[in-house]
Structure formats: C-alpha cells, structure tokens
Amino acid sequence: MKIIVCVKQVPDTSGKVAVNPDGTLNRASMATITNPDDLNAVEAALQLKEETGAQVIVVSMGPPPAEGMLREILARSADKAVLVSGREFGGSDTYATSQILAAAINKIGLEDDDVVFCGRQAIDGDTAQVGPQIAEKLGLPQVSYAADIHKEGDTLTIKRMLEDGYMTIKVHTPCLITCIKELNTPRYMSVGGVFEAYSKPYEVLDYNALKDDPLIDPSTIGLKGSPTNILTSFTPPQKGAGMMLEGADRATCEKLAGIMAAKHMI
C-alpha cells in the first residue's frame, strides 16, 4: 500500500504581504512555507503508515528550491519525495495543474490499495480545486473536507465537514481525500529524521519524464493549456480610516450612541 501526498510550497500570506506597483505580488519578499492544510495531509498519511506499514510518497509541483520543503517532510518520516518541475508546466491554472500532478501520480504508479491525500486549499491560489480535479483525471472517487479518517481493509470511513454539520462517507481504495486542519495536529521533524532525510529517495520528474502520459499535451498543460486566463489583478483600496473617538469613558460611549441615533442606526 502506498499513500501519495500532494504538497505545495506557498508564500506565507499570514503576515505582511508586499505588493508591486503594478498590482502583482512581490513573492521574493515573502517567506515560503509548506501549505498549512498539506501538513495535515502529511500527518494523516504518517498516521496511516503507522497503522498499516504503508509507504508515504510526497509529490510537489514547483521550482527546484521546493526541494528544501520536501526534505523537511522526509524528515517527518515520509519515505520518498518527488518534485515535478519544468518550464513547460509554468502558468498552469488548476485544470492544467491537475493534469500534470495526475500524470506524476500515474508515473509513481497507483495501485488498488493506494490512497492520495491533498490539502483542501492552498493559501496562495486559494481555489481548493486541485484535489477534486486530480481525482477526476485519475478516475478516483473523492472525499473533500475530511476531519476524521478510519481505514479498515480497503474501506475508508470519513467524516466530511459541512457548514451545518457533517456527513459520514464510506469509500474504497484507491481514492483521493482532501484534508482540513481539524483532522489532526502535524508532528514536528525529529532530529534523527533530519539526519536521514538526505539519504532517502528523491526524484525529479520533468516534462520528458511525463510526456508519454496522454494527460501531458501542450493543449492541456502550462499557460496555453489552461482554460482560465487572468484578465487583471489588483489590490483592493484601503477603506479610509474613520474617526477615533476621544477617551474611553462614559462620555465617549454617550457620544457614540448619539451618533448612532442621529444616523438612525438605533
């Protein structure tokens, strides 16, 4: 049994985000991190490995520096890492990204008792589309928003979160699951793990390595294979600061209540 985990390296958008004058993001000025939901996906895979002895393979599409992130995940006791990297893959929207990642998973070899894990959503593109689209390209059943996973034989029972509750869903392997932060608490790297990370198998798949897969076609990958185009991007204007009321005492509150009454808010 193998567990294949898709992980993306992303800019850390939680702090200050620098924007260029032309409205694009200044990625160079931002620290890169492993996408948070993907760490939950890795943790879910490692827990299943502990239960079943499965092999955990992490896959990422991105530029070569993503190797650092992949080594860190190997240090959390994943078994193998695969970096999918090539100029031909650049500019892909989620449709094209899922074509490429599905081809990489085909290359790794998907067997009947395997499971693919993704994070629910990447914090940069923010679409949550890549997981379900990989599942479609591989013809796998999918369960998204997983908050709890139990495996017995070839059946997984999954708690799938909804806004107003949850569903319990049964699905058989092979399947694809997208993970949310409620699923678990990711472990840290171990000292021994960091040491071993550099001797574990690490493979780079470029365009030539994948080009024989029917999913890889100039009309379905990269910028030209992407059905969507970005017409323009921009930053929203800051709403002009309002009025700071003086003080924080009874008189201040009475003034505010007075304004609210005058504006018919109360």
Binding site: T127, A128, Q129, Q133, E136, S144, L162, P227, T228
Partner: peptide, 23 residues
Amino acid sequence: ATNIGRDLGPRCAARLHTGLCAD
C-alpha cells in the same frame, strides 16, 4: 461556493474540460 459547491464545481469543470473560477 459552499463545502458542497467547492467539491462539485472542480470535478464538473475537469470532466467538461472548461475553466472554473473559485469563490
């Protein structure tokens, strides 16, 4: 773009070979 819509939309767009804009 509910938890269900964001599960369904990408799967349909991938099958239909069309673009999907999220959220």
